[in-house]
Design a protein around this nucleic acid. Sequence first.
DNA 1: GGGTTATGTAGGAATGGTTACTATTACGAA
DNA 2: TTCGTAATAGTAACCATTCCTACATAACCC
Lengths: 161, 161
Amino acid sequence: MVTITNKEPLLSHNRKFRMTRQRQVILEEIKKVRTHPTADQLYEMARRRLPHISLGTVYRNLEILSECGMVQKLDLGGAQRRFDGNTKKHYHVHCTRCGRVDDVPIEAVVKIQTTFQGASNYKITGHKLELLGLCPQCKKAKKALTKRPGRRAGRKSNSHP
Amino acid sequence: MVTITNKEPLLSHNRKFRMTRQRQVILEEIKKVRTHPTADQLYEMARRRLPHISLGTVYRNLEILSECGMVQKLDLGGAQRRFDGNTKKHYHVHCTRCGRVDDVPIEAVVKIQTTFQGASNYKITGHKLELLGLCPQCKKAKKALTKRPGRRAGRKSNSHP
DNA sequence: GGGTTATGTAGGAATGGTTACTATTACGAA
DNA sequence: TTCGTAATAGTAACCATTCCTACATAACCC
């Protein structure tokens, strides 16, 4: 359980922000979980403590917190953006079946960039690597499905958010 | 210049689609370019030949064409989805300054997946790697800028044909 | 061919995530 | 305390994408 108690102002590279109650709650809530929540999930989480907080405030503060390096904005593709309280550079693995996102406990490998440095006439300055696969639950579910004898009707399209 | 002349029906894994005039034009237009256009860019391109085509038709057909493996849907993050007439698995490099997207002429390295296979309890089945950097033009522009201090360009969603 | 069904189309409305606007409130320095 | 600014709630606007509907066209079958 993470608790942020000080209310020191936040510093971005070119601005100073006040640590307001709303901002603090959003920060605490995102630091609490490892689920890479979306903005509206964080809105629900914050609303349990601040029933009058508005979705716009959540968006604005996530923007500010990420500008100050307190949270990470993830752009994994798909409809909704996700946010991560873990600001260390790291990779994510995305379940293709249920949409769950987990951390991959391996630090970012900068070597990837040098590998590709000469391959185009761009100056490579970064990279985004996202692993795709089946989470433990979906692995089991899949296995259970293939075990069952008899032919299966059609493959189901996943309901992947 | 690529031209598709035959109007054979398209086959997806579970359906058959007719090759209509609209579908053919969209396919030809996307095969013509290497710019990874967005749906509305393709809409404009197709409209030059079929002034009455609608944006919905473009979206629906891109969906169908990608289901049949004729084009590739790219989900690079960012507001708009992009499409690629090159269906071979390959990587992309994305300019962080102007948003331009180019191919990286190196085939997908499956080794990446095996590297990460044990790092989580997911079954890794794929990966998405996107290089970030400065395109040739922006490299030059940046160099010119550092000579004399410039103003900060607002973040613009790219508008690159 | 003529009738019927499946498939595709244009156009526009609806959706959903995100951002912008506005009046009001809270904070911090003088 | 007072003034100026930052932040907020609430709501409207935005924009890419999807869905809906009436109509058109092709394929199929007799």
